[in-house]
């Protein structure tokens, strides 16, 4: 095939694929953050640590208990969500009436403690986790080579994101969640157990992070700092998309991954900063974010 815009198609599509994969992680993580912020009013700074915990539970499970990848994909989110639920019930619960800042500080502190302890025990160098046999190898699409595991990441992330969107926007449970985000006191007066709804929502948001962590384990090394690096970018994505919108979090996540990938092709020097540049521009033009409701 001829060159595209002066670049070999292999390079262009290769970077777009990487962008889409990064975007899949951004989408999963910012979706969880948006759900948690909506109902709990808390900016969950522990999200990166919970993503890392997901990867570590998968790695530890494989190493010590022989839990395979597919089982880990279900079990790790459940285990990490259970830890999240304990955190919500014992700590976060006390902060809902306070300013956002307190929740942010508490979860930030938790992230430092969790990441610090894992660094102490496992070091920062990172542990390998191999791609499951069923997803190894790849296909030559003619214009590029597509590794099967990478395609799986995109598909799995899209399924979970769409499923979550559907649940929130189209089901009765989602109606409770939306109503609780708007006016929890009235929802509770109608007879809904709002404290339980809040606990489960936090658990679900955390489970999404852990799921992303398991997806990431075979392509990035499993390391205690894997989440903190990613989280900064994800926060920028959340700011760009606007806190309020579920669909917005998903679309912005994918879009920012693609923009990052394209930048790598055309101007590699800016590829790590381009998202922050977009963030600044969006903040100047539309402070509530691309999909946020203007106050």
């Amino acid at each position: 095939m001829a060159e595209l815009l002066g670049f070999p198609p292999q390079v262009l599509f290769g970077q777009l694929l990487i962008g889409l994969i990064n975007g899949s992680f951004y989408a999963l993580l910012s979706l969880g953050l948006a759900i948690i912020f909506g109902l709990l009013n808390i900016i969950n700074f522990a999200h990166g640590a919970q993503y890392m915990l997901g990867a570590f539970v998968a790695w530890l499970g494989l190493k010590f208990l022989g839990v395979n990848y597919w089982a880990a994909l279900v079990l790790a989110p459940v285990v990490v969500a259970a830890i999240g639920i304990v955190i919500e019930k014992t700590m976060l619960r006390r902060l809902y009436k306070e300013d956002h800042l307190y929740g942010l500080l508490l979860t930030f502190g938790l992230a430092l403690i969790i990441e610090g302890s894992f660094t102490h025990f496992f070091g920062v160098s990172g542990q390998p986790y191999s791609v499951p046999a069923a997803l190894s190898g790849g296909n030559n699409l003619g214009f590029m080579f597509l590794p099967t595991y990478r395609a799986w990441i995109i598909v799995a992330s899209l399924i979970i994101c769409f499923g979550t969107w559907y649940m929130i926007e189209r089901t009765k449970l989602g109606a409770y969640l939306r109503a609780g985000t708007e006016n929890p006191q009235l929802l509770q007066a109608f007879g809904i157990n709002v404290p339980l709804l809040i606990t489960l929502t936090y658990g679900y948001g955390v489970a999404l992070a852990a799921f992303a962590g398991v997806l990431a384990a075979p392509i990035y090394s499993v390391s205690p700092v894997m989440g903190s690096n990613l989280l900064i970018v994800v926060f920028a994505v959340v700011v760009i998309g606007g806190m309020g919108s579920i669909a917005g979090a998903i679309v912005t996540g994918l879009l920012m991954g693609l923009i990052e990938g394209l930048t790598k092709v055309f101007y590699p020097e800016a590829s790590t900063t381009v998202i922050f540049l977009v963030m600044i521009i969006v903040l100047l033009i539309r402070p509530a974010g691309l999909f946020g409701k203007e106050a």
Partner: peptide
């Protein structure tokens, strides 16, 4: 009673 039990 918690608020959500009263409606019931």
């Amino acid at each position: 009673m918690p608020a959500h039990q009263i409606a019931h």
